[in-house]
């Protein structure tokens, strides 16, 4: 890749016996919304902290904008915005003052800063809450303030570390829309989450992390092509006999048939008209069918097949 904004090579981070990052490598191009997907403890936040030179690491290199990242690399830091997992604002300052304070760490010109602060307030929709202290804000509004503090200076690279944890669906959608908008305005975005739906919704490329390793990397469709599953059909039906189950499993392109939660679940690898064939067979065998579901694979299926555990199970 030519325009790498972030380049991580062979990063190793140990906490005594625990290996938090195990030879982790990654390149992120300019203009991407790059998702780091993995369960809690998979190493997403550790990666971000090493990337920002907050954490020391045992081995490997981290380059941002083509230069080695270090705590005193102030030129690179000017171009970074961070939205932390934990809300990082001052309780003693109002919404406006908090954004102005953090923006002031990057922009010294007062007039320019005032303009940027107003823009950030408008961007996250906190116009009515400018003079509010953080403790008077709801969880969702607080998250929005947290975002405004991280993006007000218009950074080229913005890192969102699980920004939607404990956020109501309405605020979550606003946040996700905002991230896409920032990307459209030219920012490269790194987005970490253990919510696969969010990552699937907004990220242009995704790295699946598990136990400190990058298990797979690619676009949403590229990742899904990595696995055998192309379609999962579930039908509410009484449990078929063992003999019938064997017959179902031997249908063209089916590679697995199980009965779980009062549903027959059949997984396919490729092929067309799988649903019709399955329903024909069940009708021939005179099974009464209830609701029928046909699902294309999700990132959870990708995660399941790559790591052996479901993303939600491993949290």
């Amino acid at each position: 890749m030519s325009n790498a904004v972030v380049k991580i090579e062979n990063l190793v981070k140990r906490y005594n016996e625990l290996i938090a990052l195990d030879h982790f490598s990654l390149e992120i191009e300019e203009g991407e919304i790059f998702g780091l997907l993995g369960p809690n403890g998979s190493g997403k936040t550790t990666t971000i902290n090493c990337l920002l030179s907050l954490l020391s690491y045992d081995k490997g290199t981290v380059e941002l904008f083509g230069t080695k990242m270090a705590p005193d690399n102030y030129e690179v830091k000017k171009n970074i915005g961070i939205v932390m997992q934990n809300v990082a604002v001052f309780e003693e300052l109002t919404v406006y003052e908090n954004i102005d304070y953090f923006c002031g760490l990057y922009v010294s010109d007062k007039e320019q800063r005032a303009k940027l602060v107003e823009e950030a307030i408008g961007f996250v929709g906190l116009e009515e809450f400018k003079k509010f202290y953080p403790k008077k804000l709801s969880g969702g509004l607080l998250r929005r303030l947290n975002i405004a503090c991280g993006i007000a200076h218009k950074p080229k690279l913005i890192i969102f570390d699980e920004p939607t944890v404990a956020v109501d669906p309405q605020s979550r959608n606003k946040i996700l829309e905002g991230i896409v908008k920032l990307n459209e305005q030219g920012a490269t975005v790194i987005y970490t989450s253990h919510y696969m739906e969010e990552v699937e919704q907004i990220c242009t490329r995704i790295a699946i992390m598990d136990k400190g390793k990058c298990r797979a990397i690619g676009t949403n469709s590229e990742l899904k092509k990595l696995i055998r599953n192309t379609e999962t059909i579930s039908i509410e039906v009484v449990k078929p006999s063992d003999e019938d189950m064997k017959e179902i499993a031997s249908l063209p392109h089916a590679y697995e048939a199980v009965y779980e939660d009062s549903k027959l679940v059949v997984r396919y690898s490729g092929g067309k008209h799988n649903l019709i064939r399955l329903m024909q067979l069940l009708s021939e065998k005179q099974y009464d069918m209830g609701r029928v579901y046909s699902e294309i694979p999700t990132l959870n299926d990708v995660f399941l097949e790559i790591t052996g555990t479901a993303l939600r199970d491993s949290e």
Partner: peptide, 11 residues
């Protein structure tokens, strides 16, 4: 977390 945010800034 506030300190982490400050540490990431060029200040």
């Amino acid at each position: 977390a506030i300190a982490a945010r400050k540490c990431v800034s060029p200040a």
